[in-house]
Simulated scan of single mutants.
Amino acid sequence: MTAQFHPHLYFETECRAAMTRYQAVFGGDLQLNTFGEIGMEGDPDKVLGASLRTPDGLVLTAGDVTPGSSAGTGGSISITGDEATLRGWFDALAEGGEVHMPLEKQIWGEVFGQCVDRFGITWLINAETGRS
Score class of each variant (00 low, 15 high):
F5Q: 11
F5A: 09
H6L: 08
P7F: 03
H8A: 12
L9R: 05
L9C: 02
Y10H: 12
E12L: 14
E12P: 02
E12R: 10
E14N: 07
M19C: 10
M19I: 04
A24E: 14
F26Y: 07
G27P: 07
G28K: 10
D29V: 11
Q31Y: 15
Q31N: 13
Q31V: 11
L32F: 08
N33P: 06
T34C: 05
I38F: 15
P44H: 09
D45K: 09
V47E: 06
G49K: 15
G49Q: 15
T54Y: 02
T54Q: 05
D56G: 07
L58T: 06
V59M: 15
L60Y: 09
G63N: 08
D64C: 09
V65G: 03
T66F: 09
P67E: 00
G68W: 05
G68K: 00
S69N: 08
G72E: 11
T73G: 02
G75L: 05
I77H: 00
G81V: 00
D82K: 12
D82W: 06
L86N: 00
W89Y: 13
G97N: 07
V99S: 02
H100P: 05
Q106H: 11
I107K: 14
G109Q: 08
E110Q: 12
E110A: 07
E110Y: 03
E110L: 01
C115M: 07
C115D: 05
C115L: 08
V116P: 01
D117C: 11
I121R: 01
L124F: 11
L124S: 09
L124N: 12
I125K: 04
E128Q: 13
